[in-house]
Write a protein that binds this DNA or RNA. Structure first.
Length: 671
RNA sequence: GGUGAUGUAGCUCAGUUGGUCAGAGCGACGGACUCAUAACCCGUAGGUCGGUGGUUCAAAUCCACCCAUCACCA
């Protein structure tokens, strides 16, 4: 490791604020979160940002359908997406929105730079127009009969039956999906980005970025076909940013979306002394910037985006990492098969470490699709994680706790063996760095096998029967626990929740990668609690069953088990935070409700609380309460409630808010 | 339709530049053990590497064609 930490900015693709996070999305977030966590664990200065992608026609249409403003829709969905991602351990340094002041300023700044550099021109094009809705229609909003194979009800850009591609005006009997009327073709002036002028720059960038073979061969393909200029404008009505100097032209969502990476980073820079926006984004920045994306958006991230950055006088990304898609049981996710699984559904029945591990065990640096085979998932997680990995701790900790009062020996039993585990650190690190997670998992599990064999060979359960060998039992179990601890440090990027529990078990301070090489000796450990529990196939079945019908919208969570207890995992899913009441007011038309605006440190939420009879609004402002930060947002008659505040009592006047001792600040996690 | 990717033991996958490359884990089966969340340890199983044809002394590994699955086509 170099003395000076690397400065790294990592992004995940922005989730579109039009739907729920599902297992497919999670491949990307878990992959990039793991990488960012690895860099941080190694002591690098790594920042990981993301944002909600909020603009475009689909969001405008959906908001209309729900009879709300687009702003309300994107705020609700964005909060829900962030909560889901955080529940899976995805730890952004910042999750922002493309519908922000920062983003608009950056988009305009970049557009003006592009314009000044001669990279923008206008051209009149013809486009489908819905006269009843008074709006231009994107290709996907026109349907009709395929001109080639005559299949009915096909989208305006391609036929799903015969695979033909065409433009909407070639469709037979085209109709607008918004009104079922026949669209007309109207002319409109559009703004174009001169992508074709950047071919040489992009070729040059492609070499420097050392893109994965699969991506660069794709790019070569596109270069050979010749780059086409890019239509970056859309006509009103459109939900997005208006192009300066125009009345009714808006930036296409795909222009402002990647700028959202910058906006989220800028938003964070303004709150952090150790981050300087320009130092990362100036054309000659020495820092590293990486985008993790899915293979479906390679075009945008390896052509448009670097070209737009270059054209606006900024630096290009250091590299772009693309992953494949997720299949479940070998097939595309499907609602009828129950394999279109939302993150939220998963959380109700299964823990998140298991999925993180399974994905890691399958992920490599390439663009190949990965398969979540549910039977294999259960077998693999139970065998690898519970059977061999956690088992090491489980079989050693008992002796230490019961026989030695939790006291670890002062030395190791087998320094050489420990040394073998330490010697793998560089190889594991290199595999993480190269996103060869599957290889890293394989390597770590091979070590776990080795640790189990070591214990098997020493047989502490026999030694304990002989008073003369009592000290050796302590040595062997100290050895075993330290082998386990080293492995858990290696796995911390993938299994942050289990790593955290392990760290606490040993009473360590925050782990760094190098700690894996230094055994913990002579210390008293906490009482061992199960770090993970086996998965029952019934849990997976429950997820499938629940996913089969239309996603149960905001159904109260079914109890996850028959038992009256919850696991530590279950509890950890509830994100309790200290919140400061910024504003409180009665809700018109509701007898019991107060509308609270809560400050959660990094965000503000609107929450409705049934405490009107017990608390005067004015008395609440400024005080701290405990809020559930990841409760699914709920649409109420008066607006969306984005959480709940904790209170005790039967209700009515007898309701008592929980508070925290002085010193606590808004945003602190309760645990 | 064009382009590209993938197709290796029941399952999930490794196999750098062609010659110990026919492998691992899981499952299954047999045995041992009982510290551990029926976990762990030892052993067995044995797929003509999607198909056909070709190049080569030698191909899962190169070429051609075919089949299947998947993706992209701004």
């Amino acid at each position: 490791m170099s003395a000076e930490p690397r400065k790294i900015l990592v992004t995940s693709a922005l989730p579109y604020a039009n739907g729920s996070i599902h297992l497919g999305h999670l491949v990307e977030y878990i992959q990039s979160d793991t990488w960012a966590r690895f860099q941080k664990l190694r002591g690098e200065h790594c920042t990981y940002v993301c944002a909600s992608d909020t603009h475009g026609t689909p969001i405008m249409i959906r908001a209309r359908a729900e009879n709300i403003e687009p702003e309300q829709l994107i705020e609700r969905i964005g909060a829900e997406q962030l909560a889901d991602l955080e529940a899976f351990g995805v730890a952004f340094d910042n999750f922002y929105t493309t519908h922000s002041e920062e983003n608009e300023q950056l988009v305009v700044r970049m557009y003006e730079a592009l314009s000044a550099n001669g990279h923008i021109y206008t051209k009149t094009i013809e486009q489908a127009y819905d006269e009843t809705k008074s709006m231009f229609l994107p290709d996907r909003f026109v349907k009709g009969t395929c001109p080639r194979c005559r299949s009915e009800d096909q989208y305006g850009d391609a036929c799903e039956v015969c695979g033909a591609t065409y433009t909407p005006d070639e469709l037979i009997d085209p109709v607008s999906v918004l009104s079922d009327t026949r669209p007309v073709w109207r002319e409109s002036e559009h703004y174009f980005f001169r992508l074709s002028a950047f071919t040489d720059d992009l070729r040059d960038w492609m070499r420097r970025a050392a893109l994965h073979q699969n991506i660069s061969s794709k790019l070569e393909e596109w270069f050979e076909a010749g780059l086409q200029d890019w239509d970056i404008s859309r006509d009103a009505p459109y939900f997005g940013f208006r192009i300066p100097g125009t009345e009714d032209k808006y930036f296409y969502v795909w222009l402002d979306a990647p700028v959202g990476y910058l906006a989220s980073f800028l938003h964070l820079c303004r709150r952090r002394d150790d981050l300087d926006f320009d130092a990362y984004w100036d054309a000659d920045s020495p820092h590293e910037v990486y985008h993790f994306i899915g293979k479906d958006i390679v075009y945008f991230h390896t052509l448009f985006w670097p070209a737009v950055l270059k054209g606006s006088g900024m630096r290009e990304p250091t590299s772009v990492f693309a992953h494949g898609f997720l299949t479940i049981n070998g097939k595309k996710m499907s609602k009828s098969r129950g394999t279109f699984i939302n993150a939220r559904t998963w959380l109700r029945h299964l823990d998140t470490s298991s999925l993180r591990y399974y994905y890691a065990a399958k992920l490599g640096p390439g663009m190949d699709d990965i398969d979540l085979s549910l039977d294999d998932f259960v077998a693999r997680v139970n065998a690898d994680l519970v059977g061999k990995l956690v088992n090491i701790a489980s079989r050693c900790a008992g002796f230490i706790t019961k026989q030695f009062d939790g006291q670890l020996a002062e030395r190791l039993d087998d320094e050489d063996l420990f040394g073998e585990f330490v010697a793998e650190a560089d190889a594991v690190a290199a595999e993480y760095e190269g996103r060869e997670y599957s290889k890293a998992m394989r390597r770590v599990m091979a070590l776990a096998d080795r640790a189990n064999r070591y214990i098997e060979a020493r047989k502490p359960w026999l030694m304990i029967k002989d008073a003369a060998q009592r000290d050796d039992v302590q040595l062997v179990c100290t050895q075993g626990l330290n082998l386990f601890r080293t492995l858990m440090i290696y796995l911390a990027p993938v299994l942050p929740a289990v790593a955290e529990r392990t760290r606490a078990l040993f009473g360590d301070d925050a782990w760094r990668w190098a700690d894996a090489a230094a055994p913990v000796l002579g210390r008293r450990i906490d009482k061992y609690e199960a770090l993970l529990t086996r998965i029952d196939p019934k849990q997976v079945n429950a997820v499938i069953e629940e996913s089969k019908e239309a996603p149960a919208a905001a159904q109260p969570a079914a109890t996850t088990t028959d038992e009256a207890t919850v696991s530590i995992d279950d509890f950890a899913r509830v994100d309790l935070r200290v919140a400061r009441v910024v504003a409180a007011e009665p809700v018109e038309g509701a007898d019991k409700l107060l509308r609270l605006t809560l400050d959660l440190g990094d965000s503000r939420r609107q929450v409705f609380a049934g405490i009107k009879a017990a608390y005067a609004p004015d008395a609440l402002v400024g005080r701290h309460v405990i809020a559930v930060a990841n409760l699914a947002p709920r649409k109420m008659r008066f607006g969306v409630s984005e959480g709940m505040v904790l209170a005790a009592g039967p209700g009515g006047e007898d309701i008592f808010l929980l508070s925290v001792d002085s010193g606590a600040e808004a945003g602190m996690r309760v645990k």
